[in-house]
């Protein structure tokens, strides 16, 4: 019986382990996996670095937002990154949003308010595609969750532009990227050194820009992450105590059986 139990338990563990391995996705084709970066938010109890995320928002606003929407975010969400209420208002008011219809049935432009969603660069997918060689730039709200490799992939992609190796034909309008599945990506290198002028004295290198904007996108994809991890500790500690007590109860109940 004892042997059997051991065998059974081992097999069950193997079952769970296999399920876990087979549950994770596989890298596409021959594209190498982007190397893992040391993200503060990927640690078990990690959090987003607010300064990096704020700089990342600046990079998004000044560079990415020209083509990429972030339609799941509202300006009010930015207060989570440490922007003050007035700063959020100012950021929102810097864009004109279409509202209405008014009493005459006309749509009209008004300055944005914190409750507005991030303004998209194009009116719709078709317009986005038409302006970008037929391929609409994807929305970035969930990018780090929606790609295998998460933040590492996004960072890798941003810094992964290089000369195509000899023998690789890059079609017209395409760019060679080390980490993009299939290597040929429609987006040109979006960032380079000094793409954005930082106000906090951080050195504006390509890798710094990429790190910052990736941090911002990771926050945008999982704004609940810090609260989730904080609550998780409490819940698991509570369950540990309760389970310990339940074990003691079970022992006590069963001890008079033998």
């Amino acid at each position: 019986m004892k042997m059997n139990m051991m065998k059974t338990s081992a097999a069950a563990l193997a079952f769970v382990a296999t399920v876990m391995v087979s549950g994770t996705s596989f890298a596409a084709g021959d594209t190498p996996r982007a190397p893992a970066q040391n993200w503060s938010f990927n640690k078990l109890f990690g959090s987003f670095e607010p300064a990096a995320a704020q700089r990342g928002f600046q990079v998004y606003k000044e560079v990415c937002s020209g083509c990429h929407s972030m339609s799941l975010l509202s300006y009010r969400h930015l207060s989570q990154l440490g922007f003050s209420e007035d700063e959020v208002k100012a950021i929102a008011a810097s864009v004109e949003v279409t509202a209405g219809p008014n009493d005459e049935g006309e749509m009209f432009e008004r300055p944005g308010i914190p409750a507005d969603r991030f303004k998209a660069p194009f009116a719709n997918v078709q317009a986005a595609a038409a302006a970008n060689n037929g391929k609409a730039p994807p929305d970035l709200s969930l990018m780090t969750k929606a790609r295998v490799g998460g933040a590492d992939y996004v960072y890798g992609l941003l810094v992964g532009y290089e000369e195509a190796p000899s023998g690789v034909e890059v079609p017209e309008g395409g760019n060679y990227n080390k980490y993009f599945p299939g290597h040929v990506i429609a987006m040109g290198p979006p960032l380079s050194d000094e793409s954005v002028e930082y106000t906090d004295g951080t050195k504006p290198t390509l890798s710094q820009h990429a790190k910052d904007v990736t941090t911002f996108m990771a926050w945008a994809a999982e704004p609940e992450m810090e609260a989730r991890k904080r609550m998780g500790v409490k819940v698991l500690l509570f369950l540990l105590v309760l389970t310990g007590m339940l074990y003691a109860v079970k022992r006590k109940v069963w001890e008079n059986l033998h």
Binding site: L239, V241, L242, M245, L246, A248, V249, K252
Partner: peptide, 16 residues
């Protein structure tokens, strides 16, 4: 002692 254990466990479980 048993009663204390049972009642405190039930209380912790109920609060949870």
């Amino acid at each position: 002692k048993r009663d204390f254990l049972f009642i405190s466990t039930a209380a912790v479980g109920a609060v949870g």
